[in-house]
Design a binder for these strands. Structure first.
Lengths: 228, 228
DNA sequence: CGACCATTTGATATGGATCAAGCGATGTGG
DNA sequence: CCACATCGCTTGATCCATATCAAATGGTCG
């Protein structure tokens, strides 16, 4: 299994980025996928799979970040989720991908054939449990996303920051891998509103905007209050 | 298994409604659940289970309708889904219910212990597949809901009507079991906006509002165009 | 018939979108 | 190494879709 054939007939095939040390994120002990996975490097903005393609593989993020998304007929884009090191994705659908997936930044993923995982699951019920749990996790994520989308702009941004803090922060400092556009498309807002809200949270001393991509949570209690 | 103990310490316990003939909806052959299920009647607005309660049972709607929902700290309610005859619910979470469930109208459900189903699934992989498929179905529903929530009011209402038409209509005539408030809380709108949008779709001849709860789809193509 | 509740309709307010500059970091060619 | 183009982000001004507030209508049930 030398080359990865889950990305056929795509404009820009995923190519190798400069080798980098694996920084495993907050792991959940996803042994089966991690142990069976073959590594692949994907450059920023390169597609990993497309909507409606057969869902042949499962992916585990080693470094970088991935977004999944759908595009409405008129071009509006809805980002379904971001996946960071330690996360597994490609499970958003049973047979055919319901979303497209792209690397947010240069990313290293492990990929495993779902068929292989299924057959492993048939023998080893620990693997089966792992797969089930990943699906539940995905469902829970989607349910929380729904809840986020009925909130005000400030609440959405606060939720987002708290979520990212829980997933990618080192002692309260968040290094966002994604652009304002990505955040906006995830939260169902415009980049202007995201930007303004961030600025506002900064002046309210809830956060500190070191740079546009580096945010320090200053008052998590205030954010949680905003989160509703 | 005579009485149902999944509804402990609840204000109004589910009580028996007048016996009515089972009208099975568009079935999906959920044999295991249907065959193992015990019937229960639940009156309008009575809770079936509450958020954070242990998810002990799975439910199959025989007649009537059910809504699942979460309430934000300030009282805003988000309806996660409606379940109509033929649908199975109670699968929105692994251990503890992420949503509360209530009968929208007087409803008859079959309920099955999840533990019993799990052990049946261990013996019979057809049952296992059934459970997995229900979870996928739930995930897909949530994903589509996310997409709906970034659309305009008109698009949301159009999607909703098309969805309901597919699930509960008899030749284009929809008998809505739920109130405008329920629809509004499902779509992330106000009742006024839902009402106005319906009126507007009626004057545009896309639908006919026989009564507030009875809607006939007149121009499905137009609705689909609006749906984006 | 009258009270009640759901729905519709009307008038007004507002949060976030849109349109339009600025600004700062990053990278590129001279 | 610097001037300049580019791109992502911020900020400002205005607009609009939907919320909010308020009232009228209509269907249901005692």
């Amino acid at each position: 299994m030398l080359t990865h054939n889950a990305i056929p007939s795509r404009p820009a095939p995923a190519s190798v980025v400069s080798g980098r040390k694996v920084q495993s994120g907050a792991g959940c002990g996803q042994t089966a996928i991690e142990s069976m996975g073959a590594p692949m490097n994907v450059r920023r903005d390169v597609e990993i799979y497309g909507e409606n393609e057969p869902a042949e593989y499962l992916y585990h993020v080693v470094s970088g970040a991935v977004r999944t998304y759908r595009v409405l007929s008129d071009g509006r884009r809805q980002i379904g989720a971001f996946y960071v090191p330690g996360d597994t994705f490609g499970l958003e659908s049973r047979q055919f991908h319901a979303f497209s997936a792209e690397a947010v930044s240069d990313t290293k993923v492990l990929f495993v054939s779902r068929a292989a995982l299924e057959s492993a699951a048939a023998r080893d019920c620990e693997v089966a449990r792992e797969l089930r749990d990943l699906t539940w996790c995905e469902l829970q994520r989607a349910q929380n996303h729904i809840l986020a989308l009925i909130k005000t702009a400030e609440e959405r941004v606060a939720s987002f920051l708290l979520e990212m803090a829980a997933r990618v922060s080192r002692d309260g400092k968040i290094e966002l891998p994604m652009s304002r556009r990505d955040i906006a498309d995830y939260l169902g807002l415009t980049i202007e509103t995201v930007s303004r809200t961030m600025t506002h949270l900064d002046s309210a001393a809830a956060i500190e905007l070191r740079t546009s991509r580096c945010i320090v949570l200053k008052n998590q209690a205030m954010l949680r209050r905003l989160d509703a």
